[in-house]
Computed example of a mutant assay.
Amino acid sequence: MVTASYPARVTSDDADLGEELVRLASADNFRDVAGPGYPTADGGRVRRGVLFRSNELTLTDEDADALSRLGITAIFDLRDAHEVEAHPDAPVPGSTWRHIEVKGIPMEAVATLESREEGLAVMGEVYRGFVEKEGGRAAFGELLREIAAGTGPQLFHCTAGKDRTGWASVLLLHLAGVAPGTILEDYLTTNTISSATRTKYLGMVREHLGPDKVDVYETVMVADAAYLQQAYGAVDAAYGSIDAYLAEGLGLGPDTLAALRVRLLD
């Protein structure tokens, strides 16, 4: 579904792929969870080349080879079953594929959107569901346990790479000790690097549904600080803190949390 307007390119020799920016023509929201190596509260940096995030992996052969050269050993697909069926991931040589389903934006609700307010309400429900719904908590807990147990580079993704993938990245960067402001900036990066895709689909909305619907449908195509705040608010209401949500809500024990930090930190 997602195609960028630039060709695939790798900005490094194969041996250094994990240390440089890799951009994919067929997955424009692919990037390193660590960003440029975000600073942490203890003066360290998040380790690059270990965890990657993306939108759906409907990849060209060239892009699949680029991911293989990064050494990715495991891919975790967070999409609904019907999303997987409609747009299955391309195989990446050397990696295993695992489906960990998290409910995303309900398409039946999107299909009937009439106002921007309705779109905002749908997105708020999605983000609160990451915290409030048992299935969401179970899935994010499973994902983080799998990451903690991993020994090689891993990748997780959903459809657009902004909501389910965004929340998982928020949790990982929090665990690494990255400042909240930096976590928010990283979350919002989707809006920049996927702007060509968003423009394309909003253009289709304008053409087929009319210009008055562009503002309505934009609500479900962007990362927004207000959406993230919905999840944070649900965390505060139910658990009091992100750390308590990780431990009590996701059921992550001290050993798992410690293993995650070992993987994340230089």
Rank of each mutant, 00 (worst) to 15 (best):
residue 93 P to K: 06
residue 106 P to Y: 14
residue 133 K to D: 15
residue 132 E to P: 08
residue 105 I to T: 09
residue 80 D to F: 09
residue 126 V to M: 14
residue 72 I to T: 13
residue 109 A to W: 07
residue 68 S to W: 05
residue 129 G to D: 05
residue 139 A to V: 13
residue 86 A to S: 00
residue 72 I to G: 00
residue 107 M to Q: 09
residue 125 E to Y: 15
residue 66 A to T: 01
residue 85 E to G: 07
residue 137 R to D: 01
residue 89 D to S: 15
residue 92 V to L: 03
residue 78 L to E: 10
residue 66 A to F: 06
residue 101 E to N: 08
residue 64 A to H: 01
residue 83 E to Q: 12
residue 96 T to I: 02
residue 82 H to D: 01
residue 131 V to G: 07
residue 95 S to Q: 04
residue 117 E to G: 00
residue 95 S to T: 03
residue 73 T to L: 02
residue 135 G to R: 07
residue 110 V to D: 01
residue 108 E to R: 02
residue 111 A to P: 13
residue 119 G to N: 12
residue 132 E to Q: 02
residue 67 L to T: 06
residue 96 T to G: 15
residue 131 V to P: 11
residue 82 H to C: 04
residue 123 M to C: 10
residue 129 G to Y: 14
residue 86 A to I: 02
residue 92 V to D: 01
residue 67 L to K: 00
residue 93 P to M: 11
residue 124 G to R: 15
residue 83 E to Y: 12
residue 101 E to G: 01
residue 131 V to R: 02
residue 118 E to G: 03
residue 99 H to K: 03
residue 108 E to N: 13
residue 107 M to Y: 05
residue 116 R to W: 02
residue 118 E to C: 07
residue 117 E to A: 08
residue 135 G to H: 12
residue 66 A to C: 12
residue 75 I to Q: 04
residue 97 W to D: 05
residue 101 E to K: 10
residue 87 H to R: 15
residue 77 D to R: 04
residue 126 V to E: 04
residue 110 V to L: 08
residue 131 V to F: 10
residue 69 R to C: 03
residue 101 E to P: 14
residue 95 S to C: 09
residue 80 D to Y: 11
residue 127 Y to L: 04
residue 96 T to Y: 15
residue 102 V to I: 15
residue 65 D to H: 07
residue 124 G to K: 06
residue 111 A to I: 00
residue 74 A to P: 13
residue 78 L to A: 14
residue 65 D to C: 08
residue 123 M to L: 07
residue 82 H to T: 13
residue 116 R to C: 05
residue 119 G to R: 12
residue 65 D to I: 00
residue 81 A to V: 09
residue 74 A to G: 13
residue 124 G to Y: 03
residue 80 D to T: 11
residue 111 A to E: 08
residue 82 H to V: 04
residue 81 A to S: 11
residue 105 I to S: 09
residue 97 W to Q: 04
residue 137 R to W: 11
residue 136 G to P: 01
residue 77 D to W: 02
residue 138 A to M: 11
residue 90 A to C: 10
residue 74 A to E: 13
residue 109 A to H: 12
residue 133 K to W: 14
residue 104 G to C: 10
residue 78 L to C: 06
residue 86 A to M: 03
residue 107 M to A: 13
